[in-house]
Structure formats: C-alpha cells, structure tokens
C-alpha cells in the first residue's frame, strides 16, 4: 500500500484545470481503479466513462501522463508513481466534463462510410463459403473497439481540426474492414478520395502506435486504401484494365 497523487482534469467546456487527489493504491491496480476510488471517496461528481474494465469496450480513453491510453488497461506499476500521475481527457474532441469528451463526431463520420453490401450467396444453402485465410485480413480491422485513441493522436484532427474534411484513422480502419471483407461488393474508393479525405494522411504512423488492439492501422489499412485510390484515379493502365474486368 502506498499513497499516490493524481492530477485529474476537472472542468467543463473551455474552463478547466488540474486538481490533485491523493489516494491509496495496491498491487495490480490500474488507473481506472484509482480514478474510481477518488470518485467514491472524494469527488462523486467526477465525470468518467467506463464499461467493461477489461479493454473490450473502448469507453475509458484518456491521456495518462500525456500518452493516449485506456485507463482500464494501464497498470499503475507501469508508471512512475514518485511523481503525480496526470490524467486528462482526449484533445481531439470537445470537452463535456472532466475526463469525458463529446465523441459524437466519430459516429457521424462513420455514417458517411458506405455500409457493407454482400455479393449474392454462392452456396446452394443460400449462404457463403469463405476460407479462414481470406477472412483474417478483414478480421484484423474488425477488432477495433472504437476507443478513438487513434483519432485523438492524428495531427490532422488534433492540431489542424480538419474534422469536416477527414474521417480519421479509426474510420479508415472501418472502411478497410468493409473493403477487405471477402463478400463486399461496394466501391468506397471514390468516397475515400473525395469525401473522406484520405489524402490528408501523411503516414506518420502515430495512430498505429497508440492502438490498444494493436491494429496495424497505417500499413495494413490506410496504405492499401491509398493504393486503391491511386489505382482507380491515377493509373491509366489499370483504368483501361477495369473496363474489361468487373470489380471483385
């Protein structure tokens, strides 16, 4: 048992500041446990989101000592407890209160991505056959828990506030999940270029580094999508080829 000091962001909208709380910590605790203890003992109105406490729902995203992380998966033993631990809300979205941000924009951005559209069933029983190797590619992207930590670190959103023009890495992962789905026949490539702003991404890979699901966002999702955009729009040979060969 030890006493540890936490600096938590408190406030609403544009007004806020760090407030210090000291609480007792024990073996195995994660940041979310400490935040809950503070909530129960000292600040019952402290705003914080959580659900699963096991890294599965993507609710508890925050910046811990400046690093975008899930509070429920960050063990205190991984932090320097000699100094106060700072916990603050994500920066790419408007603050609601304390550690809670308004992530509603992400839900709108997702709406803009064309939904899944399957090809006709090919098996006689009205279903499909797919091989494990073929589903695995898209399964990687389907691990996304919508924590929006990648959106939080992407400079296009965080620093340049291009929310109107760019859907961000999380939604590109979504688009990749559909595009690489073995059954999907929709074409999202023109939208990716014209509506979703894939060109804004300059492959800094910051998003990949913070993904708690270890999705290789840049290499496996964004770069192949960018290549498809290039193929479709800038490569005359492919274009010609396309006339003879229907998609997928």
């Amino acid at each position: 048992m030890a006493q540890v000091t936490f600096k938590l962001w408190r406030g609403e909208g544009n007004n806020g500041s760090f407030k210090e709380y000291t609480t007792e910590v024990s073996e195995g605790m994660v940041v979310l446990d400490a935040v809950h203890d503070i909530q129960i003992e000292q600040a019952s109105d402290l705003g914080v989101r959580w659900n699963c406490k096991a890294g599965k729902c993507g609710s508890c995203s925050a910046e811990i000592n400046g690093m975008p992380k899930l509070m429920c998966m960050t063990r205190l033993s991984s932090l320097d407890l000699e100094k106060p631990v700072t916990v603050e809300p994500m920066k790419a979205f408007p603050l609601v209160k304390d550690l809670v941000t308004d992530v509603g924009w992400n839900y709108e951005a997702k709406m803009a991505v064309k939904p899944f559209k399957p090809r006709k069933p090919d098996a006689s029983d009205g279903t499909w056959r797919m091989q494990q190797e073929d589903v695995e590619r898209a399964q990687e992207f389907r691990k996304c828990i919508e924590c929006f930590l990648c959106q939080d670190v992407c400079h296009v959103l965080r620093d340049h506030h291009e929310h109107d023009k760019y859907i961000g890495p999380a939604m590109l992962v979504k688009a990749a999940a559909f595009e690489m789905h073995p059954l999907d026949v929709e074409n999202r490539i023109p939208d990716l270029k014209n509506e979703h702003g894939i060109g804004f991404c300059n492959i800094t890979k910051c998003c990949t580094k913070v993904c708690p699901e270890h999705i290789t966002i840049t290499d496996n999702a964004i770069i192949p999508l960018k290549e498809s955009v290039v193929d479709e729009f800038y490569d005359p040979l492919t274009k010609l080829f396309r006339i003879f060969k229907s998609k997928k």
Binding site: P115, F116, T127, W128, R129, M130, Q132, R142, H181, L183
Partner: peptide, 16 residues
C-alpha cells in the same frame, strides 16, 4: 453473416 459478421471458418469455408 449477411449483414457483415465475419466468423471463423471450417476447412470447407463454413462457419466454425
């Protein structure tokens, strides 16, 4: 599955 769920597969390509 027809709405997009991607289950693990058997060798024959059916839902495992």
């Amino acid at each position: 599955e027809s709405w997009g769920a991607l289950f693990d597969r058997t060798k024959e390509g059916k839902i495992l």
